[in-house]
Design a binder for these strands. Sequence first.
DNA 1: ATTGATGTTCGACAATGTCGACCACTGCTC
DNA 2: GAGCAGTGGTCGACATTGTCGAACATCAAT
Lengths: 251, 251
Amino acid sequence: MPGTVQSIERAAAILRMLAGGPGRLGLSEISRSLELAKGTTHGILRTLQGVGFVEQDRVSGQYQLGASLLHLGTSYLDTNELRSRSINWADPLAVRSGEAVRIGTVLDGQVLIVHHVFRPDDTFQTLDVGALLPLHATALGKVLIAYRTGLTTTELAAYTRKTLIKPRELAMALEHVRECGWAADVEELTPGQAAIAAPIRGYGGLVIGAIGVSGPVERICDSRYAPRPRLVTSVRDAARAISREMGAARR
Amino acid sequence: MPGTVQSIERAAAILRMLAGGPGRLGLSEISRSLELAKGTTHGILRTLQGVGFVEQDRVSGQYQLGASLLHLGTSYLDTNELRSRSINWADPLAVRSGEAVRIGTVLDGQVLIVHHVFRPDDTFQTLDVGALLPLHATALGKVLIAYRTGLTTTELAAYTRKTLIKPRELAMALEHVRECGWAADVEELTPGQAAIAAPIRGYGGLVIGAIGVSGPVERICDSRYAPRPRLVTSVRDAARAISREMGAARR
DNA sequence: ATTGATGTTCGACAATGTCGACCACTGCTC
DNA sequence: GAGCAGTGGTCGACATTGTCGAACATCAAT
C-alpha cells in the first residue's frame, strides 16, 4: 500500500499472529505464515524485542507478546472516550440489574470489550476487557452491526445450538433490533447465558458502541425465554444517558 | 542500532509518547520531540492508523492510541507465566488478608502491574493492571530493585513526605529488604496507604516479580507503623508458593 | 488581510530493509 | 553413531523503500 511503511505493517502482522492462536510462535512458522524471508522476520522480531513488544523464550526460542503492550493497552483505555463517559453509568446499571455489565465497540469485525463491571456478588469472575467476541452471536455485537453499514460478517460460526448462522435469520434479527432499539442473545454464545444490549450513539447519532447486561438465562429472561422488560428498560436508559454525554461533549 | 529496523523503533517511540502525558498529541509536536521530519512522522502515523494502533481525532487532528493495542495488551496477559501461575494464590491472599493484592514485574525502570485482585469489600476501586508505578516508592518496587542488579533508579521523585528520596536511605532500606526477605512502603506512595510485598523467584532463583497487599495504613500496620507480622507471613507464604510453581515449571 | 501555526502531499534519492546463502544446533530415525 | 530435517541466527550485496525538503491547504489569532 503506497504511502505507508511496509515494515511497520509487517511488524503489526507479527504481533497480531502472536495475539491469536497459542500465543507462542517460532521464527520459521511466522516467516511461513507471512511469506517473509527468515532474515526479514528475524530483523523485525529483534526490533520488536528491543522495544519490549515481544519476548523470546530462552529455552524453546519461541516468541510471544511483550510487557510493553500491556501498558499501551491500558493507556488506550485511559483516553477512550466511550469508556470514560460510560463508567459512571455502568456501575449503577450493574447494581440496579444485579448482573454483569459490558461495554463494547467494533474492532476488526468483532466486539472489543472496553469496560466490564462484575456482577455484584461473590462469584468468581474473569475480566473481559480487551477480549474480542463475535458480532453475530452476542447482544453487543448485534447492536453494533444493526447500525453499522459495511460490517459484513463473512462467516457465521456456531457457538451453541442457538447461534444464528443463516444470513437471512441474522438479517431479520437485525431488522428487529433496528425496530425496537435493543438486542438480545439467548444462549447464542454460551449455553445457559443470555444478554441484553442497547446502542451508544456519538456525535451526529452514529452508533459508536453498545452497553449490555448478561447473566444466567433464567435471570435475564422469563419462563418463555423473553428478555425481562425491566432489564431492557434499564439498559436502554443507561445507553441513552451515555449517548447524551457523548453528544454533549462535541458541542 | 545495527540489525534492527529503524522505522519500527520510531513507531514504538511514537506509541510510547502517546501512552505518556495527556494521551493526545499533534503531528508537529511528535515530530519536534523525536526530531523527525513531518513527512516521516506522518507516514509512520498513517501506517499505525492503518493497523489500528493509533486513531486520529477528526476535529482536532490530534493522534491517540488505538483500540488494537487493548487486545494485544490483554493477550500478553494470557501468556504471561508470572501472572498465570500467581492467580491461584492471589485470590486466597486477598480473602485471607482482607486487602487488595497486586502482582508486578519490571518494565522500563518501573513496576508494571500484571494482576490485581480487589479488596474483598464493596468500596469503589479501579483496576491497576497495566499501570506503571515507581520502583523506589512502592513495596513491590523495592522488592524488585533489591534483588535486581542494574536497576539504577536515576531520579527519586517524592510522592509523599515519607518517600525515600536520598540514595543512601534507599540503599539502606534495600539492604534491609534483602535481609528479611520482604519490603513495605508506609505512606511512601499515597498518604494514608501502606503495602507489604515479597519476591517471586523463577528458574534458578532469579527474582522475576513480586506480590503484595496494600490498604489503609491502620490496617496494614500497627499503632507504631510497623507492618503487621500476620500480613507479612501471608504475603511471604504466597510468594514462596508461587516461586515453587515457577521453578517447578522449568524442571 | 496577514501571519503563524497546523496536517498533508509528493517526488528525488540516499539509506535502509530485504533476502539468499550459509551456519550451528537440536531432535528424531535408522 | 551417522544422517537427515528441522530450528533460530548471521551477513553482505543490492534493490526497494523510507526519508525529507519543499510546497500546499486550512485554520485560528491578530
